[in-house]
């Protein structure tokens, strides 16, 4: 079986569903059609650009270019985590809080995959490293931003309860314990749902793509299992690191709640 080659007409026909959804939004005054249109246009431009860029990067096959691309992806993901927060830290913490956990989790798990299951791939071979790091990074970014947003919003809401615990002699990790557990669950719900529903409710994207591209379904399933383990592991490491850092950032060495370090998004 050979891969299905898509024409521009095929893509436009696929966009019909989005056009119908936007029409419904207009009729029902849901006011999401402009957001849908902007996001769709952004997605098309970004994916076409990345496709063109990867074609060049794969052809060049230069470790320096690959490293540059990986660094740019991590920087962009760090900014994305920051931009999704309802409450943001002032100063260096605004980027450090998201950037550090996603960098650690992504590099650790990507490295683990490249030294074990995917050991035959060269470390800086762009054809392997960029897509692998990209999918892991995207997943960690989602989990981390969801967890941080939930955590900072809960801290604002539960300020009196947290301070009551601190006043009674709890340390910062005990005082923020419930908020942290809840935020961690929030951040991991997507990946847990993805694993629980994989194969029964949904055929995951990677597996779908590989089957459409002609791979044997069982081999595609194995690839998907490998990826799900990597994504869940990286997501969990990222979320745990982010919530731990969040506790350290929202309190000081005297275990005081420092909401003055936060600003609400305008």
């Amino acid at each position: 079986m050979t891969p299905v080659n898509l024409s521009v007409t095929d893509l436009l026909l696929a966009a019909l569903s989005l056009i119908i959804a936007s029409g419904l939004s207009i009729v029902l005054a849901l006011n999401i059609h402009s957001s849908l249109a902007v996001s769709a246009l952004r997605m098309v431009a970004q994916l076409l650009l990345v496709g063109l860029m990867l074609r060049y990067v794969f052809a060049a096959s230069s470790p320096t270019v690959t490293l540059f691309i990986l660094a740019a992806m991590i920087v962009a993901a760090t900014y994305e985590v920051y931009s999704r927060q309802q409450f943001r830290f002032r100063g260096w913490r605004r980027f450090g809080l998201g950037g550090l956990p996603i960098t650690i989790a992504t590099i650790f798990v990507t490295g683990l995959a490249l030294t074990t299951a995917l050991r035959e791939a060269a470390w800086l071979d762009p054809r392997h490293t960029i897509p692998l790091l990209g999918i892991i990074l995207g997943n960690v970014m989602n989990g981390t931003s969801l967890a941080l947003n939930a955590m900072l919003t809960s801290i604002q809401r539960e300020k009196r309860a947290i301070e009551a615990r601190l006043s009674l002699g709890a340390d910062r990790f005990l005082a923020l314990g419930e908020v942290r557990v809840s935020a961690t669950r929030n951040g991991l719900i997507p990946v847990i749902n993805q694993m629980a529903g994989a194969g029964i409710i949904i055929l995951p994207g990677i597996m779908t793509g590989q089957v459409l591209a002609g791979m044997d379904p069982l081999d595609a399933a194995k690839y998907q299992i490998l990826l799900m383990f990597l994504l869940a592991g990286a997501g969990t490491i990222g979320v745990i690191a982010a919530t731990q850092l969040c506790i350290a950032a929202i309190t000081d060495e005297r275990h005081r709640l420092r909401l003055d370090r936060l600003i609400a998004r305008e």
Binding site: E158, K159, R160, A161, I162, E163, A164, R165, S167, E178
Partner: peptide, 8 residues
Amino acid sequence: VAADSGWW
């Protein structure tokens, strides 16, 4: 103890 203390 605050005037309106919190509960967790």
